[in-house]
Amino acid sequence: MNFQDLHECLRLELVRRIEEGDLTGTRIAAQAGFRQGHVSNFLNRKRALSLEGLDRVLAAQGLTIEDILPVQISAEGNAGEVGDELRSRPAQVEQVAMVPLVSMSAAAEEAQIRVASVIEEVPVTAARLSDQRDRASRRVAGWQRFVAVRCDSQQASAMVPLLAAGSIAVIDRHYNSLAPYHADQPMLLAVRYGAGLLLRHVELDDARLILRPAAIDCPVHLVAVAEDRLPSDYVVGRVCMIFHGL
């Protein structure tokens, strides 16, 4: 196993812990003594850690090299053989997909996200994306499927505790139906409202979409569905993942 293999194994383990809610990028930075931007670049494959930095992150997370390897090493195992096996199993290394973080307007309007619209990229386990069920209208079937947006304080205050200021919401733009994703759980949808988006629970009442906040002290918003439009035309997509601290 070479340094690059070890570097990628650690990154994948940190992404897994973040997705499970056990860790945040901010906490990694504080524990290991890095700037938050340095950790974010590492998680996004934009910057590598030095050998010393790798040791600091391992120590801060209470990890050993054996903990992050994708195969079990016996006491007499050969590290070179492990590295060869890791490189021969690309699915083990390529488990992370990069979702573009864009503005609210780009998420709503750009069928294919332009390079100039990408603020940064968010690492997400590829399996979590492929597991998402789609329910797209014909209008958006050809759109780039997953995008991410960062929530400002106004968006977050309406959806406490689901959202927090600065949290990142990944939107599945191939699920713009009002049909519940889970029968017993309300969906969080990204809906066009004025020139922007609102992240809200949504109901249809006659020819109106009711955008309901989670916080009882925030107002309910109404969107009138035009006669020549469908309710799904106003839905940008379903929020399928939320990350805090990236």
Rank of each mutant, 00 (worst) to 15 (best):
M1G: 08
M1K: 09
N2F: 09
D5P: 10
D5V: 03
D5Y: 01
L6T: 00
H7I: 03
R11V: 08
R16T: 08
E19H: 10
L23M: 05
L23S: 00
T26R: 07
R27H: 00
A29D: 08
A30D: 09
A32N: 05
A32L: 07
A32F: 06
G33M: 06
R35I: 06
G37C: 06
V39R: 10
S40Q: 13
L43C: 09
A48Y: 10
A48G: 02
A48Q: 14
L49C: 00
D55I: 07
R56S: 09
V57A: 00
A59L: 14
Q61H: 06
G62M: 06
D67V: 04
I68G: 05
I68R: 01
I68H: 02
Q72L: 14
G77Q: 04
N78Q: 03
A79S: 12
A79R: 10
E81F: 07
E81Y: 01
D84Q: 12
E85T: 15
L86P: 11
R87M: 11
R87V: 06
R87Q: 12
R89K: 05
P90W: 02
A91E: 15
V96K: 04
V96D: 03
A97K: 12
A97C: 12
M98T: 04
V99M: 10
V99R: 13
L101M: 09
L101R: 12
L101P: 13
V102T: 09
S105Y: 06
A106F: 11
I113G: 01
A116P: 10
S117L: 08
V118T: 01
V118Q: 02
I119D: 05
I119Q: 13
E120C: 07
V124P: 07
V124T: 11
V124D: 08
S130Q: 11
R133H: 09
D134K: 04
D134F: 12
R135V: 07
S137P: 07
R138I: 05
R139G: 02
R139D: 02
W143M: 08
W143V: 00
Q144G: 14
F146P: 03
V149Q: 00
C151Y: 03
C151D: 01
D152C: 01
Q154G: 00
Q154H: 15
Q154L: 14
Q155A: 15
A158P: 03
M159R: 01
V160S: 14
L162N: 14
A165N: 13
A165R: 00
S167W: 10
A169Q: 02
V170S: 06
D172P: 00
H174D: 02
H174S: 06
N176I: 04
S177H: 03
L178T: 08
L178Q: 13
A179W: 11
A183R: 12
D184A: 14
Q185R: 15
Q185Y: 08
Q185F: 13
P186N: 09
M187H: 04
L188I: 00
V191A: 02
V191C: 02
R192E: 15
R192D: 09
L198R: 15
D205N: 13
A207T: 14
R208N: 13
I210M: 12
L211H: 05
L211R: 02
R212N: 04
P213D: 08
A214W: 04
A215W: 02
D217G: 10
C218W: 03
H221K: 07
L222D: 15
A224W: 06
A224M: 08
A226R: 15
E227D: 15
L230E: 15
S232D: 13
V236G: 10
V239H: 04
H244F: 12
H244G: 00
L246Y: 14
L246K: 07
